[in-house]
């Protein structure tokens, strides 16, 4: 009996592993983005940076790859319970949020950390009903727990003490999401076979969705987003 159950379980696991695939790809930016702005730091934060800080709206890397794009399965993925344990940490270092864009699952707890030795306040500003706005002072190095129960692409975090500090967290109700690296590359792992709509979402360059059918093989999916021309002639 036990042996039968073991064989069946192993077969099921092998089957699920065999049918899980990865989607990899690159998000590129076409067009010329506006230049980033230099940030006017206050005295406390200015001491921490030898070089000027700039905004991070368009991070264009090698081969016109666009960083900080939130790529996720928009349709076709079944909602999954949030994993146990904490998700990735959103950190405040040198008066800057790191990373600028990250993803978590709905219901997944994650920490927002203050790695600086002075006050920041962490203000999350979700818009979806069911996700609670939270404003927490962090006067010393410490962590605060956050969780969003509903999917939302993207929730803005800001520091009201240092207005130039803001970051974004994408919340989806399954584990199939990624954030492009500095060269626009991404990888979404472990997708079961099926039909999906995958969306690449960038705060400035907009969003693009592609349908994809996955079987056992990994797929490559590339996106091209556009930096729109300056609206003022």
């Amino acid at each position: 009996m036990k042996l039968t159950l073991g064989i069946i379980t192993a077969a099921a696991l092998a089957g699920s592993c065999a049918s899980a695939a990865d989607i990899t790809g690159k998000v590129k930016l076409s067009g010329t983005p506006p230049p980033e702005k230099q940030i006017q730091l206050d005295a406390t934060c200015g001491k921490l940076h030898a070089k000027p800080l700039t905004t991070r709206h368009y991070m264009v890397g090698e081969g016109s790859g666009l960083g900080n794009v939130f790529v996720y399965v928009k349709e076709g993925a079944k909602p999954a319970p949030a994993p146990a344990g904490k998700g990735p940490t959103l950190d405040q270092v040198g008066c800057e949020y790191t990373p600028y864009v990250m993803g978590v699952q709905a219901g997944q707890h994650f920490d927002v950390k203050n790695s600086d030795t002075f006050l920041h306040n962490v203000h999350s500003m979700p818009k979806v009903e069911g996700n609670k706005e939270k404003n927490v002072g962090q006067p010393i190095p410490m962590k605060s727990d956050f969780v969003f129960e509903k999917s939302e692409v993207l929730v803005r975090f800001k520091c009201d003490v240092h207005p130039w500090m803001f970051a974004y967290v994408g919340v989806v109700d399954h584990p199939y999401y990624a954030v492009t690296d500095k060269d626009g590359n991404f990888k979404i792992s472990g997708l079961p076979a099926g039909n999906y709509t995958v969306e690449a979402f960038h705060l400035k360059a907009g969003a693009k969705a592609e349908k994809v059918t996955l079987a056992a093989d990994n797929k490559t999916l590339d996106f091209t987003l556009e930096a729109k021309a300056a609206p003022t002639p």
């Binding site: 506006p34 130039w164 729109k228 021309a229 300056a230």
Partner: peptide
């Protein structure tokens, strides 16, 4: 919005 570069959130 696409062309706007916000420096203060």
């Amino acid at each position: 919005n696409s062309h706007r570069i916000e420096a203060a959130g």
